[in-house]
Design a protein around this nucleic acid. Structure first.
Lengths: 335, 335
DNA sequence: TTGTACGCGTTATCAG
DNA sequence: CTGATAACGCGTACAA
């Protein structure tokens, strides 16, 4: 920067201001400085800048893990939105461990990140480390897995609406008795999805029957097992909505092995739009979680907070509507 | 830090040195300082440290994309190894675009990363941006997709050996005529895998037949199509080794629809150990790419370079051996 | 509108 | 073994 100033016969202050587009610099000077900066291929030292301002152009992201489809896709969205705004992204994993989560938050704060995006580990109970973030004035946004207490900024999915949509779709396809594969009910996403399923039945004035709801850990094997159980009932269902795609994969395999044709005799719809849903035969109808949009929305919210920091206004909570992707496992040609 | 020094009645210099375990500090003093640091919950400002030393505790990672199974798994390995060594990780995507790749490298250099790990975008031809990294004295390691010119540090997989291993496994299972689903031959990984397949046949003294090799883009549909073609031959094969798992998924579906039992009448083995390989029926035998080990090895190599920077010794090239995971699609009970 | 001077929190250098 | 001091590169209050 000193070189630049000398070459132009101005002070470093002027250079600094011209490059950061400060208002008190004449347009002519600005032009000259920026021109020369390009010529000399000047690269501002972001570390020095971060030290001086106490804040970098880095966003920290904490996720439970980065395998599977969901989190990479969200990170993808975060990355894109961030880079558009001139930020880079540090990704850390909590491995579903509260202790590690606490440590990664520390790491990020030390790196002077300009903001933190978090999806909670399942085990997390104490939220003290996030309080610390707030105290340092670093904006904080949760996505997907947010604390239930309402005074936090978060971007979440409307699981209930998605489940309702999927179930109603099955009804519209002419299904009369729809079963549900439910996940562990201590996780809110699975509670919500079950509730959405019930909503859909109730708005149609249909009876809900606990025999048609099977609870499990939602593995492939669980899904297959559940179908064997359901199809052995006196009044077996003619469709199933599952709260996760893996279980639905097992369900699909089981249904076909039991000799039913899909979707004519039995229809299926899942949740999450996993990668393999398009690979099965027939492909699985599923509820997409809008991963990319979620990431983008989280960044937007974060940057908004960063600029209007003063306003201690009520916490924002963005609720994304999922999208039902209808595929062969539920689409009857008649409709 | 000033507080710390005052409380202990020593200088900041001493504190700094004690905390970084400098040799010229008495063990007793070290103890006292570190004790007090813990008590006051002192957190060194990494940004200031980075500014002063011209190097941070950040590693930059550039990958083409983070969707799918492979790269997240490698990043996982990188993250783990890095955090063990006290480094954090910035992940950037090149989106298979040379221009973007160049820009991410700049971003990382500005962030003063201590090292850079790169998996090349497919389109990259000019390697000038990497030369720049070297000039700044920042250690650079490629993983998986490395430049062909030999003077670079890289961790790669022995695709040829993996393919050979898989093919030999099929031979040992009693298969006599093994076909191959090959990928685009302008990509070295697919060339290598084809070669490994040929190696296996040749070492067994078996003839190789171009009719049994089908070239495609390796999609699910390609795999199915290929099987229809192969099984219509006058002398159809009794097994197939595919250079990618997606194609093998299509192949498996096609084979079963044509009425053959797997693995008794027809055996299959794929490459990459994708997530869905355990979900098919029967599960797919596949060659695992040791993603985690690759990440860890890359970090190890990088840190090694960082310490022995002076030595302009020959570039290291670590070649990882893949691991064949035998599953139901190729395992005959007789064996 | 521009320039001067100081400080952000560390660490390297040199002197004790 | 320890301490004083300068410097890393930038942003900003204040003076001109």
């Amino acid at each position: 920067m000193a070189d630049l100033a000398r070459q132009l016969g101005v002070s470093m202050t002027t250079v600094s201001r011209a490059l950061s587009d400060h208002y008190s610099i004449g347009p002519a000077t600005k032009q000259r400085v920026q021109q020369m900066a390009r010529e000399l291929n000047y690269q501002p030292n972001q570390v020095a800048s971060a030290l001086r301002r106490g804040q970098s152009r880095l966003l920290g992201v904490v996720v439970p893990y980065i395998e599977g489809r969901f989190f990479p896709a969200v990170i993808q969205g975060i990355e894109q939105a961030a880079s558009r705004a001139g930020f880079s992204v540090i990704v850390c994993q909590s491995h579903e461990d509260e202790q590690l989560e606490r440590r990664t938050i520390d790491t990020l704060l030390h790196a002077q990140v300009a903001g933190v995006l978090v999806s909670l580990a399942h085990g997390t109970r104490q939220l003290g480390h996030f309080e610390k973030v707030r105290q340092r004035g670093v904006p904080l946004v949760f996505f997907d897995r947010a604390p239930t207490s309402g005074d936090t900024n978060a971007v979440v999915l409307d699981d209930r609406a998605g489940a309702c949509q999927a179930t109603r779709h099955l009804l519209r396809q002419g299904c009369l008795r729809i079963a549900h594969l439910a996940g562990p009910q201590h996780l809110s996403i699975y509670r919500e999805r079950r509730q959405g399923y019930l909503d859909a039945l109730q708005t149609q004035g249909l009876p809900t029957c606990e025999d048609l709801i099977i609870y499990s850990a939602m593995t492939v094997a669980d899904g297959a097992r559940a179908m064997h159980q359901l199809l052995a009932l006196a009044q077996p269902p003619d469709a199933v909505f599952g709260a996760g795609d893996s279980a639905m994969l097992g369900a699909l395999q089981a249904v076909r092995e039991l000799g039913l044709t899909v979707p004519a005799q039995f229809a299926l719809a899942g949740f999450s739009n996993e990668g393999f849903t398009t690979l099965t035969n027939p492909p699985l109808t599923s509820v997409d979680q809008r991963c990319g949009e979620m990431g983008a929305a989280a960044v937007r919210l974060l940057l908004e907070l960063a600029t209007t920091r003063s306003s201690r206004a009520a916490a924002h909570r963005v609720v994304l509507q999922p999208e039902l992707l209808v595929r062969g496992s539920s689409l009857r040609t008649s409709s």
